[in-house]
């Protein structure tokens, strides 16, 4: 399976993402610059964390109009897995590919530590390698991860099982502790925590690995059955 790691000016988790795919999973990964206009040769799209365009105006607001984002939208429409982590999640909400918005953390602090998450929906292409309700330990590193959406949107997310991860404990003010959500179709996931930083015991844990394994497993199965 071949992944594109989209690199915006100011991305800084692109190396971790590449490492997770290439070295820990043994799959193909390529860095793709933000002005690329063709993603058709990739099977999965990864939007890494960082501070694209300095987070000027709002986090993700400027990156959302990068040339590559039309291609990301096309990939999402084609049903390819699209995963946005941290700044990648912020970009996906700004682009309207996921509902809601990420506000400044309620205590105004940039929080960088490992937190516990609950897998709220293990029946997605990103989480089928986790158990439903499983508690996992994944690092967070953000100042604007306070998920906000209006009541109607929240109810819609809830009713459709689109809330994929929640924080075991509130620390940033996110609505109902939402840490990660998926689109209705189930192929676009945005999350603030960093699974790509939890792929090796050497760096403190492997609870992020099943997420990447899930994507690959799903892709393999769908491509074998179509062969």
């Amino acid at each position: 399976m071949k992944f594109a790691v989209i690199v915006f000016p100011g991305s800084n988790c692109d190396l971790d993402m590449y490492h997770a795919i290439k070295d820990e999973l043994g799959e193909e990964a390529e860095y793709v610059w933000h002005d690329t206009h063709d993603l058709s040769s990739y099977d999965g799209i990864l939007l890494p964390g960082g501070f694209s365009y300095g987070d000027y105006l709002r986090a993700g607001a400027i990156a959302r109009f990068s040339g590559v984002m039309d291609e990301v939208r096309k990939a999402a429409e084609a049903g390819k897995p699209v995963l946005g982590i941290c700044n990648g999640f912020q970009i996906l909400t700004e682009a309207g590919l996921l509902p809601g918005v990420l506000l400044r953390n309620k205590d105004l602090k940039f929080t960088c530590r490992t937190v516990s998450l609950k897998v709220e929906n293990a029946n997605t292409l990103f989480t089928n390698d986790y158990a439903q309700g499983e508690e996992i330990r994944i690092p967070v590193a953000h100042g604007e991860g306070n998920y906000y959406c209006d009541d109607a949107t929240y109810q819609h997310l809830k009713d459709n099982n689109q809330i994929v991860f929640t924080y075991a404990e509130d620390f940033n003010g996110s609505r109902n502790n939402v840490a990660g959500i998926i689109n209705e179709r189930g192929n676009v996931l945005g999350m603030m925590p960093h699974p790509e930083r939890a792929v090796s015991d050497l760096i403190g844990g492997t609870d992020g690995l099943p997420l990447f394994r899930s994507i690959v497993k799903q892709w393999r199965e769908s491509h074998v059955s179509h062969a």
């Binding site: 105006l57 400027i62 109009f65 909400t93 700004e94 918005v101 906000y148 209006d150």
Partner: peptide, 8 residues
Amino acid sequence: RLLANTVI
């Protein structure tokens, strides 16, 4: 389109 995010 850009200057404001009308969600918030």
